[in-house]
Design a protein around this nucleic acid. Structure first.
Lengths: 177, 177
DNA sequence: GTCTATAGAACGATAGAC
DNA sequence: GTCTATCGTTCTATAGAC
């Protein structure tokens, strides 16, 4: 559901009622419940959509750039989105705050972080268990959170520099060579 | 209100109703509305509490450690909290996701980030406008988000290494000496 | 006929406010 | 304790497609 995706991301999951979703989508309430068992599954479907979208983006970045340029290209893409004002933080990190621990959304969230770690690992040319991979995930999540909190797109410029530092440290070895 | 603080942080702001708060506090509903104009102000008061708490922690860290050890001591404290299982992400970053843009809570959130930036700036011995300061904020927020999402306290070990890398880069200069 | 769509009433529960 | 509004959900009843 396109409408649900927009509203859940922009206004938050718990702050968006079913009525608002069906009104924006222009469908009947029964239609929604014919396709989704309930709001929990609608939320999971929303995150599934976001996952497909970010996966497509990461695939494109991987196809268009050599490994050493991918992280910067990814963060640059997020920076442009932030400058457009369409960024409201990471949809998956936000969902962690809003959904219950046993929600079907959790599985989608886990898959997102797995995909993200794989992207960073490939970009660094190391195993996913290398600390540098997790450091880039920290860099991503931190930048997204701050961009949302301070509404300051320039945090991505800082994040790109930080990611560069991480990449340098990885190639030079953990002890600075 | 102690009860509100516990529930808002543990279960989320929107997921916690007024009824739940007064039930846990053992007070009448009227008592709550005598002291707070509405839920928005109760949320702001909750964040004010958290801000006082983290400010106290940062003050203690500043008093107990030399500048070069403060960031690691702070992250180590968070790591211990995560190992206790009491960590549900950053209360202020979480609030950004849950409250409206014009909520009175926003002012408290902004003050938190100002305090945090000042802490990192003092620890690095640089001006708050230096990129390294914002990089440490990214490091903090990212680690908190991932600790909550993946429920993995070990992310703080990684974050401490990342913070070390940032501090090294700052003392060596932006161009790597 | 069967399936799926629609609009909308109505459910119990619970929200925030007084 | 009581108010009203709204939540997520279910149900009735009807209209068109295949």
């Amino acid at each position: 559901m396109d409408a649900a995706s927009t509203l859940f991301y922009r206004d938050g999951i718990n702050a968006t009622g079913i009525d608002r979703v069906i009104a924006r989508a222009g469908v009947a309430k029964a239609s929604l419940y014919n396709n989704f068992a309930g709001k929990d599954e609608l939320v999971a479907a929303y995150l599934e959509r976001r996952l497909a979208r970010v996966t497509r983006l990461l695939d494109e970045v991987e196809a268009a750039h050599p490994a050493s340029r991918r992280v910067d290209a990814f963060l640059a893409h997020l920076e442009r989105a932030a400058q457009r004002g369409t960024l409201r933080g990471c949809a998956f990190a936000n969902a962690v705050v809003e959904v219950a621990a046993d929600s079907p959304a959790r599985a989608v969230i886990d898959r997102f972080y797995q995909r993200l770690e794989r992207f960073f690992a490939d970009a660094l040319g190391v195993d996913v268990r290398e600390p540098g991979v997790r450091q880039l995930v920290i860099c991503y999540d931190g930048a997204m959170a701050i961009a949302a909190a301070l509404r300051d797109p320039s945090v991505f410029t800082t994040a790109r520099a930080l990611a560069d530092t991480v990449a340098d440290a990885v190639v030079r070895g953990p002890r600075g060579e």
